[in-house]
Write a protein that binds this DNA or RNA. Structure first.
Ligand SMILES: [Mn+2]
Ligand SMILES: [Mn+2]
Ligand SMILES: [Zn+2]
Ligand SMILES: [Zn+2]
Lengths: 137, 137
DNA sequence: AAGCACTTTAGAATCGTTCTAATATATTGA
DNA sequence: TCAATATATTAGAACGATTCTAAAGTGCTT
């Protein structure tokens, strides 16, 4: 299957061996149209119930940390209750719905160009990200 | 001293008894010109070394959680490593310097008015906050 | 001052995450 | 191909931040 092939290549390209565990996790994370926002527990449940695959919790953490270091996913800061990861590693903005706990990306086209008025001598901007919290009316 | 009087009032006004522990914590948090961004551990160290006051860690957590619920401080989401609190409870933006770990507020005047292009039918906007990560050049 | 409510406290418990070290699997190259 | 070597997985222990428990202390009301 070409997806598996692709994940195989993807993993090898950053020096990770394509083990069953890593391929299974790739399938959950990347075999989808939309950006995926998830917690370790979300991932663990999906692996168990949808993929019927058993991966130890240590390996799930190891793999997610490797993927993060390799730039396949990034961590996002929403609140201190849960640690979220995001398969969209670009610099982008989020809507967080506090009623439903849904987290969705929004794109540059959804917001007017953010312009800083402040000068930052001797500093380099690494990222500019907006978090919009909403609730159902 | 009028500051103490003020903290006394401040606490009473939301139904908290002005105990020594709460007054000491108020002094660290609010007896300053600038917004204070801190972790529980920062606070604990300041109480010990600057104020020479001993407060149990359970009380520090209890008090900070009370203050948060009463709207005296808010929690801010920077990263998943540490939990930060902020004495500026208004909706505002931050610069985080990854080199020095400094976190500073920036004000509406430092950024052009943020305009969302997206319509959000049935939703109410609770907050819009920007996090700018910078590093020293 | 007595009585009651609230607060503080030490230490235990909890929970997410990382570590350890034994076992298993993948890769290399003779 | 198949041993040797490197890397990965795993269960369970350890860790660290935070919360809980329940006993002792303090503040408020009358
Ligand atoms: Mn991490
Ligand atoms: Mn909290
Ligand atoms: Zn995203
Ligand atoms: Zn702030």
């Amino acid at each position: 299957m070409s997806i598996i092939r692709n994940f195989d290549k993807k993993l090898r390209s950053v020096g990770l061996r394509p083990t069953r565990q890593r391929l299974d996790i790739c399938e959950v994370l990347f075999d989808r149209k939309e950006t995926f926002h998830f917690t370790i527990d979300d991932l663990r449940k999906i692996l168990k119930t949808k993929l019927h695959t058993k991966i130890s919790i240590a390996t799930i953490y190891n793999t997610i940390n490797s993927f993060k270091h390799k730039g396949y996913i990034k961590e996002i800061s929403l609140n201190s209750e849960k640690t979220y990861f995001d398969t969209n590693v670009t610099n982008h903005h989020h809507f967080y719905n506090e009623t439903t706990n849904e987290l969705i990306d929004f794109h540059d086209s959804d917001v007017e160009q953010l312009k800083l008025r402040k000068n930052l001598p001797g500093k380099k901007i690494k990222s500019i990200e907006v978090l919009v919290k909403v609730a159902n009316k």
